[in-house]
């Protein structure tokens, strides 16, 4: 529950930059730029997942409809989650740096890598077993 309320509060901050700026002191610009690059790296990960969703739909036409659409939608949903989490984590890091607190820790990278691993294994099985079906 704590994560959800935090998330809602952070959504407000995405669109209220002056509130972020008012808190604490301005960190070294290099830290902010590093945080920005991390955000962009996660955004690229999200775009790659979304592109993967399109690719599954377009380049595996022999798969059964259910598998193809299910995998594509799963990848698209993962991309959405990844993008939302990217901006949320960026805001949290930016605020922590302004306040001089520890940077937030996150389970998300571990979760995402496990989801990607599972999807990859499912893809291999589906392509091997379901190619004819």
């Amino acid at each position: 529950m704590h994560g959800v309320t935090d998330f809602v509060r952070n959504i407000r901050l995405w669109f209220a930059p002056e509130e972020v700026r008012q808190e604490g002191g301005t960190p070294d610009y290099r830290f902010s730029l590093a945080n920005e690059r991390t955000f962009l790296a996660w955004l690229r990960t999200a775009l790659a997942l979304i592109g993967g969703g399109f690719a599954v739909d377009q380049f595996l036409p022999d798969l059964r409809w259910g598998w193809r659409v299910g995998l594509a939608l799963a990848l698209l949903a993962a991309g959405v989650l990844c993008a939302l989490r990217a901006v949320n984590h960026w805001v949290r890091c930016e605020r922590a740096m302004r306040r001089g607190e520890d940077l937030p820790v996150s389970r998300f990278p571990a979760l995402l890598s496990m989801v990607v691993a599972v999807v990859a294994v499912v893809m291999v099985v589906v392509v091997l077993v379901g190619w004819e079906g």
């Binding site: 669109f15 610009y29 920005e36 955000f39 991309g79 901006v87 960026w90 805001v91 930016e94």
Partner: peptide, 14 residues
């Protein structure tokens, strides 16, 4: 630093 509104807009487009 990057303005949160721009970051939010980029994520919204995605």
């Amino acid at each position: 630093a990057l303005v949160p509104r721009r970051a939010g807009a980029a994520v919204l487009c995605t």
